[in-house]
């Protein structure tokens, strides 16, 4: 599994990218449609959001199924989330806005959904830059703190999507439900853990002492 697993996950994660590149060049009769910039923008954004969800699903899936070996893919999946979100931003910056900085800055400052997206991108890039073992060792406890921001990235990503939809909120609502499940199960586990720890605390409370 060790020698097949990672290349397999890598290949699968890269498939949608290859597909979109093929469509960009019209290979196999594929096409990006009448508005190719919009197609790339939306598809990379959706992929970024999905890979963020996949990354957030690894730990719950591992705990629920006992398949501990899937933990080895978590970093790669997270890096693909950053990869697709970066492409999403690059398409916006270069193809959509033509590198015109004034409107881009105006968007980031004035349009809350773009502000949210930018914060998520910066957090993802910070996690990418510190994704190596060496960086993990160097940062010590602060590493975990920084990488816990993946929860925030999930929330910002869904919010960003929800906020720019015109009226049909079906799709962002699905992502919101999945995210609620992925974060909710963590909250539930934490609550359970605290409850297990509580009895001795209760025994030492002033009432029992008295």
């Amino acid at each position: 599994m060790r020698f097949i697993g990672k290349p397999l996950v890598f290949g699968l994660s890269l498939t949608p990218f290859a597909w979109l590149v093929a469509a960009t060049f019209g290979v196999y009769g594929l096409s990006l449609g009448a508005n190719p910039v919009e197609t790339l923008l939306e598809d990379f954004g959706t992929l970024g959001l999905r890979f963020t969800m996949f990354a957030l699903a690894v730990t719950p899936l591992r705990r629920l199924t006992g398949l501990n070996w899937i933990a080895q893919f978590r970093r790669m999946i997270g890096l693909f989330a950053a990869f697709y979100v970066t492409l999403h931003f690059a398409v916006y910056l270069v193809l959509d806005q033509g590198l015109a900085l004034a409107p881009v800055i105006e968007d980031i400052v004035k349009r809350p959904y773009i502000t949210l997206g930018m914060i998520a991108l910066v957090l993802l890039l910070a996690m990418t830059a510190t994704s190596t073992l060496a960086a993990r060792r160097r940062l010590g406890k602060r590493w975990q703190k920084l990488h816990n921001s993946v929860y925030l990235v999930g929330i910002l990503g869904v919010w960003h999507y929800w906020w720019q939809v015109k009226s049909d909120i079906t799709e962002p609502a699905i992502y919101a439900a999945v995210l609620t499940g992925l974060l909710g199960i963590r909250v539930f586990w934490r609550w359970q853990r605290q409850r297990r720890v509580k009895p001795p605390v209760a025994a030492a409370s002033p009432q029992s002492a008295a």
Partner: peptide, 19 residues
């Protein structure tokens, strides 16, 4: 309120057409 109306993307210009 959520996007600028100052420019537009003309459909049919392909990937590199400016707004």
């Amino acid at each position: 309120p959520r996007w600028s109306q100052a420019t537009e993307r003309r459909i049919g210009g392909g990937l590199f057409a400016p707004r």
